[in-house]
Design a binder for these strands. Structure first.
Length: 221
DNA sequence: AGCTACAGGGATACCCACTG
DNA sequence: CAGTGGGTATCCCTGTAGCT
């Protein structure tokens, strides 16, 4: 059977959307409530998908439904398809009116409170109809997920050198030097020259699991 | 332990409204 | 007029609680 006959004509976005909702809430009845339709129409949409692709995407249990391995595979690709469509709509909106749109940025609080606030201020004055959404992203390496899932369009923060994420693009905006701060009355504060190794046993205050921590760990060997 | 009633959840049959 | 989407009514299955 040709792809066009089997999938292209019969696997519908509506049914895929129903499957996403059912998988999310774990029951056809709850999905019906969520989508404001009747339970039978949900049941039929799922049945249509299973009939189209020839495998069960949900296991029916007395407590609801659970996705099968086939269902999970379809959901993964389905979410990708919906994401592409969302990007397409945003692109069309942007083409229709380049002065409107939305930009989502992930950044650590330190950058958010300083550099980013000023940048957004200038940007918003230049493009008042563009919505800028900022999402806290304190641990850059684990926040790459936000980029891959397209929860954010950009991430701002310290990046490791070399940058090993082949599927992402990184650009250096500026080079920031690390500085160590201490209290004015600290015994070492009067010294004009200090080797880093002399500080290894000092109590440190560091942001949790940050790139800064790993760089210091490297520095201390 | 076994039976019964009930509730929750899904499937099916049939119908109606809308659209091209 | 056929296809599609969604409705109601009803049935089936399973789990659970209560009773004997």
């Amino acid at each position: 059977m040709k792809w066009d006959d089997r999938i292209g004509r019969r696997l519908r976005l509506h049914d895929l959307h129903v499957l996403l909702t059912v998988a999310e809430v774990g029951s056809m009845g709850k999905a019906a409530e969520r989508l404001a339709v009747s339970q039978p129409s949900i049941s039929k949409a799922i049945s249509d998908i299973e009939h189209t692709i020839g495998v069960r995407v949900l296991d029916r249990t007395s407590k609801g439904v659970e996705t099968t391995a086939y269902g999970r595979a379809l959901l993964r690709r389905g979410m990708g398809a919906f994401d592409e469509l969302r990007q397409g709509i945003r692109e069309i909106e942007s083409l229709a009116d380049p002065t409107v749109g939305e930009v989502r940025i992930g950044a650590p609080e330190a950058i958010l409170a300083g550099l980013l606030t000023a940048v957004i201020d200038r940007f918003s004055k230049a493009h008042p109809r563009v919505i800028v959404t900022v999402i806290p992203a304190n641990n850059m390496s684990s926040e790459y997920r936000l980029l891959r899932e397209r929860t954010v369009d950009f991430l701002l923060g310290a990046i490791p050198n070399p940058f090993m994420q082949n599927d992402l693009d990184a650009e250096a905006l500026y080079r920031d030097r690390l500085r160590i701060l201490s209290g004015a009355k600290h015994p070492l504060a009067r010294r004009r020259k200090i080797e880093l190794s002399e500080l290894v046993d000092e109590p440190w205050l560091l942001p949790p699991e940050s790139i800064l921590s790993s760089r210091l760990a490297e520095a201390f060997g």
